[in-house]
C-alpha cells in the first residue's frame, strides 16, 4: 500500500529583501492513514511553511515550490490547478490554526461557519448543513450545541473556540488534518481536553494528523513519528520513542534537555538548564553548504562549516543529518 502523503525532495524558496532563501531545503517524508507525524523546532525553522505548502497556501508572489513534489492520495498537489486545490482544501486536507480567535470570522456565527464548509464541499442544503454542524459541535463536546451554534466566536472561551475550529476542520471527514500549534494559546487543562479529543477522533475516523509544535511533551503524547526541523532542513527523523530515548542530533538533544520537566523526586540542588546558545540563523544563511546548526553546536568541527551533513541512518526508522551523530554518541 502506498502512503497517504508522500513528500519528495521538497524545496521552497522565499524571496526577501536580501535575495532568495530556501526556507524548505530538500525535505522528504511520508505519512500513512491514521498515523500522526509531528514537526518540532523553533520558530523560523520551516514547520508552518511545510504545512502551508501541503495546503497549497504558500504566500503568492514571494514564495514558490522550487523543486520536489507533494503527492497526496496518488495525486500530485504542487502542480494541481487552483480549482482542484479548492476542492481538496477543507474536504480532504484541513487545518487547525494556532490562534482560534483570529482564524474564525467574527461576524458569522460558529454554526454558519461550519455549515459553509459542508455546503461548499458536500453540497448540503442550508438546513441539513446546520443540523450537521450542531452534531459536529456535539462531537467536539461543546455543551448545548443547539444554542451554542448560534453564538459568535467572541461569546466562546478560548478552548471552546479551538474545539469549534476542530469541528470545522473535521466537517468533511478529511483524510489529513494539519494542526499548527493547536494548543499553544490554551491552558494546560484545556490542552489535555483537546489532545484527548483529537485522539478520539483519529480512532473513529482514521484521519492522519500532522502536528506542528515546539512541545516535546505534546509530541510524546500524540505522535508516532517525528521530524525535527532546523533552518528549513530535516535535522532528525524517526519514531518518537527512539528519538526521545536516544536523540542523535545535538539540536534534538538540546530541545529535550532545555525544558524543565516535572519530576516527582526533587533535590534542593537545582542544576541550571542545558542551554542551546544563540538563535536560529537568519534567512540569508539558509541553504549554505554547511551544517546550519554549527554556530550553536558544541561538537562542531571544521567539516561542519564546510559541507552540508548527509543523512545518516541509525535504524530503519531513525536518521539524523549530522557529521558527528555517530561518533560522540559512543
Amino acid at each position: 500500500m502506498s502512503a497517504l502523503l508522500e513528500v519528495n525532495h521538497l524545496s521552497i524558496e522565499l524571496t526577501t529583501r536580501d535575495g532568495v532563501a530556501p526556507v524548505i531545503d530538500d525535505l522528504s517524508f511520508d505519512l500513512n492513514a491514521g498515523e500522526t507525524l509531528s514537526f518540532v523546532g523553533e520558530s523560523g525553522c520551516g514547520k508552518s511553511m511545510t504545512a502551508l505548502a501541503l495546503m497549497g497556501l504558500l504566500p503568492e508572489n514571494i514564495s514558490r515550490v522550487s523543486a520536489g513534489s507533494i503527492t497526496f492520495a496518488g495525486e500530485t498537489l504542487n502542480d494541481a490547478s487552483e480549482d482542484r486545490l479548492r476542492q481538496i482544501r477543507g474536504n480532504d486536507i484541513s487545518m487547525i490554526f494556532q490562534e482560534p480567535m483570529t482564524s474564525l470570522n467574527p461576524v458569522f456565527t460558529i454554526g454558519e461557519q461550519i455549515a459553509e464548509v459542508l455546503r461548499t464541499h458536500q453540497k448540503l442544503s442550508r438546513r441539513a448543513a446546520w443540523k450537521q454542524s450542531v452534531e459536529l459541535l456535539n462531537a467536539v463536546r461543546i455543551p448545548q450545541p443547539e444554542s451554542r451554534a448560534a453564538d459568535y466566536p467572541f461569546q466562546m472561551s478560548g478552548g471552546q473556540r479551538q474545539r469549534a475550529m476542530i469541528a470545522m476542520a473535521l466537517a468533511c471527514e478529511p483524510k489529513l488534518l494539519i494542526a499548527d500549534e493547536p494548543t499553544t494559546a490554551l491552558d494546560v487543562t484545556v490542552q489535555a481536553q483537546i489532545f484527548d479529543l483529537l485522539k478520539d477522533l483519529r480512532r473513529q475516523t482514521g484521519t492522519a494528523i500532522i502536528l506542528i509544535t515546539h512541545d516535546m511533551g505534546a509530541v510524546a503524547e500524540m505522535a508516532e513519528r517525528m521530524i525535527v526541523m532546523y533552518a528549513g532542513r530535516k535535522a532528525e527523523y524517526g519514531s518518537v520513542q527512539q528519538i526521545i530515548e536516544k536523540p542523535r542530533h545535538p539540536y534534538t538533544q538540546g530541545l529535550i534537555a532545555c525544558v524543565p520537566h516535572i519530576t516527582a523526586d526533587l533535590s534542593n540542588e537545582r542544576q541550571d538548564l542545558l542551554e542551546v546558545p544563540g538563535i536560529v540563523p537568519s534567512l540569508k544563511d539558509f541553504g549554505k553548504d554547511q551544517c546550519l546548526f554549527a554556530s550553536r553546536c558544541e561538537h562542531r568541527s571544521s567539516r561542519c562549516t564546510q559541507q552540508r551533513p548527509e543523512e545518516h541512518q541509525f535504524s530503519s526508522d531513525h536518521s539524523a543529518e549530522c557529521w558527528h551523530a555517530v561518533e560522540y554518541q559512543e
Binding site: 489535555a192 481536553q193 489532545f195 484527548d196 505534546a218 509530541v219 510524546a220 516535572i262
Partner: peptide
C-alpha cells in the same frame, strides 16, 4: 510536587504532557 493534595493541583499536574512514557500520570480530566 511530592504530595499535591488539592484536586485542582492534581488535575493541573496530570494535564502536563510528559516526555517519559513510563512516568505519565493517570490523567484527571476536568
Amino acid at each position: 510536587f511530592q504530595t499535591p493534595s488539592h484536586p485542582y493541583t492534581n488535575a493541573l499536574l496530570s494535564a502536563v504532557p510528559g516526555i517519559d512514557p513510563g512516568q505519565r500520570r493517570q490523567r484527571v480530566l476536568l
